[in-house]
Design a protein around this nucleic acid. Structure first.
Lengths: 146, 146
DNA sequence: GTAATACCTAAACCTGACTTTAGGTCAAGG
DNA sequence: CCTTGACCTAAAGTCAGGTTTAGGTATTAC
């Protein structure tokens, strides 16, 4: 069993964040002795999971739901899986969007490289969108696809 | 020349957002006739660029900077290019992080699929991290790599 | 015995990107 | 004439995810 300060050190998180997570219901099993939080293995594991779920872009209230389901037992396996499936689909489309934004950035870098060489944007502007060199054409099209 | 309401319709944005963008300095060249905003080609182009830059995760204050550079002329090409290069690097690392989070989600989906089949987590828990089947091992390792 | 720590709470504050509200101007329509 | 609708402003409100502050308790250190 660990105190909040020890856990904060272990995870490199501010104490205030742990208290905030607790208040948001992210540790449904957390125990206390005379008012003081006692973090056990369950909570350490929960924190590892929280770090993952946050990376996956999940909101606190969804993470709480997940933690509650974990505390409820095997009957919630399907709900938990469904939550991850939904997240997975969401992330896949986010990544696709970001890759398009990335191609837009690649295009802009190329564009300004040309403009710097020419001293103006006239020539490079005239190439858009139909006379782009092969090397950049596909990037441009990907970036502007809807 | 268009009014704010017409532009809002064209871009599918609330009027309030356009006024907000203006207040944030995103249209440095915007003109007015007796107090009323007049959006011209420069502003429509700016809005297209703003949509791109927002997709690339840029903050309003950086977009403002960019717009100011655009208004300043060719001497700012290198700054503009550098901004896009920096954004590009940032996005690439974000995408890499998201792909790792995605592998974590794939792993969790697989994990709960096993748990549902078994009715408990005992067997699948025991497989982690050294006895995972080939099909999932790489995903697990990618997800947990630092 | 008192000062420094580590813990506790409730409540206020912060940031970013907007949105909403309250109050005002001006032109056109009935 | 007066209401409707499009425009304007400044200022306050909203949301998430924390952080900070103010005030209190309990243990240990000198």
């Amino acid at each position: 069993m660990y105190t909040i300060g020890q856990v904060a050190d272990m995870f490199g998180l501010p104490v205030s964040t742990l208290r905030y997570y607790d208040k948001q219901g992210l540790f449904p099993e957390l125990e206390r002795t005379s008012g003081i939080r006692r973090f056990g293995d369950t909570e350490l594991e929960a924190l590892r999971v929280i770090e993952c779920l946050k990376k996956a872009g999940m909101e606190i209230k969804d993470i709480r739901l997940f933690m509650e389901w974990c505390a409820e037992g095997p009957s919630t396996y399907p709900k938990r899986k469904a939550m991850f499936e939904e997240r997975k689909a969401h992330m896949e489309s986010e990544i696709a969007n970001m890759n398009r934004a990335l191609d837009m950035l690649r295009f802009k870098c190329w564009y300004y490289e040309q403009a710097i060489q020419d001293g103006n944007e006239d020539r490079v502007k005239a190439l858009i969108p139909d006379n782009l060199p092969e090397e950049i054409k596909e990037i441009y099209e990907n970036a502007h696809a809807r």
